[in-house]
Structures are given as C-alpha cells and as structure tokens.
Amino acid sequence: MASMKFYCDAERCIECNACVTACKNEHDIPWGVNRRRVVTIKDGEQGERSLSVACMHCADAPCAAVCPVDCFYTTGDGIVLHDKDICIGCGYCFYACPFGAPQFPESSAFSSRGKMDKCTFCAGGPEEDHTSEEYKKYGRNRVSEGKLPLCAEMCATKALLAGDADVLSDIYRKRVINRGASAFEWGVNQLKG
C-alpha cells in the first residue's frame, strides 16, 4: 500500500514561497489561512536554511488522536484527512500537531475558529470526488486524478517532494550520494590546493 509523504530538502529550499501560493491558488484559500508555510532558521546568518512545512500526514497522527469528535481518517494512501462536517473547531489538533498544520479561518472571541482547514495532500475530503461541495470545503482533489500536490509539483527548485515514501527515499538517496561525492571531491580539491 502506498504511503504518501512530503519531504523538503533544506539544501534546495530557497524560501520562494511558491508552495504557499500554489496551495492558495489551487484551493482558493482565503487570506489568513495557510495550509503550507516556509520557515527559515537562522535568518540572515551563516547556516540559514529554510523548510517548507505543512501537514506531514503522520502514520500515528496526533491530531487524530486528540480530536474530541474523531473527525480524522487516513486514506488507503496514508493521507490524513478530516471531515469538516464533523469538526467542531476546538483547536486541539493545532495544539497537538508537531508541524502547525491545522489552520482556522478565524480566531475570535468565545473560541470561534470555524472549521479546521489543513493540507489535504490535494486529496479532497470525504465528499464524492470532484463535487463542488468537496471543492468548497477541501479544495481540489488532485490525487484522484493521478496527480500529486501542486505545492510540490510547482516547487521552484524541486526541494519539496511529495509522493510515495519509497519513491521519495530513492530520489533523496540519489541526492545524498551526489552531494556526498561532491562534498568529498570538494574537500579533496581544497586539500590539494
């Protein structure tokens, strides 16, 4: 069974935020809600690196564990989705999530947050595929069309990868080997110089 994952290669991420706007574009996400974001560590200093973060579709998802109404489910592809008809907007998933993935359309007095919204791995929600209800609540369903999440597909430097965990491992392994070799040759050249 496929297990869909995201991976962001910090060696390549340049914080161009294409993933963020691609997501907004694909799902018509309103101002203030960001299913994906880029975090830059050590901004402006040696060692600065950026990573694109969204729902990582955890195997043992903390959001699903703490949800008081059990609105989360995992698809056959290992994608963690939720049912907005069931969600009560309590915010617990946001507290538990390691990646800050759950988003809420509002944040106002009396704990009114609206229904939680998060990255769906572009796989829609529990509604019938490609219905306008599904689109309105969860955005577009690319996975059922055989496509991958748009954020990863549009990544400027192919830093953000999405897909089956095994395939991602292969891609990443190749990159690591390349870089390892590069790093090694580089080091040797430095020594020779």
Binding site: E15, R37, V39, D43, V53, P62
Partner: peptide
C-alpha cells in the same frame, strides 16, 4: 524557531515540541 512570511501564531516555529 525562525521566521516565516506566514504570520499566524506559531507559524515561525518549525516543530511544536510541546504538542507531543
């Protein structure tokens, strides 16, 4: 913890360590 152009609370944190 770093910076992010997304400005919601906690958006600048890479991993929420207290969640677990």
């Amino acid at each position: 913890e770093g910076i992010s152009q997304v400005k919601s609370p906690g958006a600048n944190v890479l991993v929420n360590v207290s969640g677990q």
